[in-house]
Amino acid sequence: MSGTHLYRASGLVLASEIALPGLIPIESADEPDARIAEGNVPSALDAVLATGPTWQRGAKDFLLEIPDIARFYLSGGRTIVFERAAGVADRDVAIFLAGNVFGILLHQRCNIVLHASTIVVGGKAVLFCGASGAGKSTLAAALGERGYPLLTDDQAAIRLDDAGRPTVQPDGRCLRLWERSIDALGLDDRRGEAMRAGLEKFFVDPLRSEADPIQIGAIYFLMQERPPHRAGIEPANLVEAAQLLVANAYRPMLIRRMGQREAYFRMGATIASDAGLFFLTRPFRFDAMDETIAGLERHWAEIGLADPGLISEARRPQPA
């Protein structure tokens, strides 16, 4: 099919009529898991189970409107049809398709999707969960500069592998960083395009990234150092872990209201027995980044995620 762009993201092969900047293209694939096409989008669903100001949910389909950008119709977790508003460029639609709308598709497929950026440490996936603005991407980028490969930015789809172990699917994405983080981390030379015209948020190529699913080693829930929380790393107990997994789903509201909570609870228990879940409380400022990373590396040595030799190797500054 001409004019089709192929991507592998969060374990799915995506075939899209328009290019999706920020996703890393693949050459060829078998039958795609999901297709993205431009077309007519209904103004309302036939049978609505729930509605919000910008969306409608049916049993198998979903309608989302981003005003003045596009309307999106998601069906069966397999197709996304979009209808753009007048004069909207491909890129402005694509940016919402690749993350925002794709995340809803993953929820529709009953995937476990965390709002998390993920790096690889000693062959295991290490996730940093938090809401938008919590510093996930910035922390993953800073660790990337120390040599830790990037696995996901913003969304982490979790599946059990054949041996029943929880793994993170690579999201096949570039880092997405704000000007302030790019400045502070000195990444100006790798800054790509602005995500949207007029937005100070850019694609940044990671130094290294992983293309295969990786078993989970640890999940950290990002917290700001604010009273009464002091900087440090504390294990989460099993009850907290299960609830935190729901609270850190890509869109928790959907999980709660689509009755998917149980799946997250079960996965929480599996992850807890297989890996560790922790609160990472750190000062929310760039000049504390080295300190935070040093604390993480000590912790990885403690929990057997990586041998200290490897860590000090990774910590050595990159040649300029």
């Binding site: 910008t54 919402f96 809401a131 938008s132």
Partner: peptide, 27 residues
Amino acid sequence: RARFDNHLLIESGLLTFAEIDLLRPGL
């Protein structure tokens, strides 16, 4: 911010301040 993103299912970080404000009444 989290409540905006969660209930509108739109990533506010990709919107301008004016675009966000347009959606806040509905939220």
